[in-house]
């Protein structure tokens, strides 16, 4: 019985060990206590989910958001380069960028049935721990994200 409990504890510890980020995004954010974020479209600043998401990530990581300006495809390039940690915007549900960046679950949906738009966060591909942190934060602040 004691062995089973020890094994279960080890497995639980292992569960928290993985995943890690290849480029160390989560470690850097924890170390520097800051992460960079930009809006793909300045107009979405008015959406309440944006501020709630950023605050939730700040609460979970203990880091402050550092806002950057910019727009469009250039932001995805900065994500890929690792000079930006988070891009929030309204993107197509079937976004052509889906293979180039990692999208979090949608915080809200607008647009038409044929071309639905989703308000969601985009992260650098492969940074799986950071992606998971943002996904958890998205689900924590949005019913839409929890149902995804």
């Amino acid at each position: 019985m004691r062995g089973v409990i020890v094994l279960a504890m080890l497995l639980l510890a292992a569960c928290d060990m993985l995943p890690r980020d290849p480029a160390g995004t989560s470690n850097r954010i924890a170390h520097k206590r800051t992460f960079t974020v930009a809006l793909a479209d300045p107009a979405i600043d008015a959406a309440p989910e944006v501020q709630r998401l950023v605050h939730e990530i700040e609460r979970r990581t203990g880091a402050k958001a550092h806002w950057r300006s910019g727009a469009g495809e250039g932001l995805f390039q900065q994500l890929d380069d690792g000079t930006l940690d988070l891009v929030i915007g309204r993107f197509l549900a079937e976004s052509p960028w889906a293979m180039d960046v990692a999208f979090g679950p949608p915080l809200s949906k607008t647009g038409t049935k044929a071309a639905p738009l989703e308000l969601k966060a985009a992260m650098r591909n492969g940074e799986n721990r950071w992606i998971m942190t943002v996904e958890r934060a998205s689900r924590a602040i949005s019913q839409e994200a929890r149902e995804e």
Partner: peptide, 20 residues
């Protein structure tokens, strides 16, 4: 040098890394 993204899903209210 493709970096594969593996996110999480919710099972019984818990966020689980899809890798598991």
């Amino acid at each position: 040098a493709e970096h594969a993204s593996v996110g999480s899903i919710v099972i019984l209210g818990q966020d689980i890394w899809l890798g598991w």
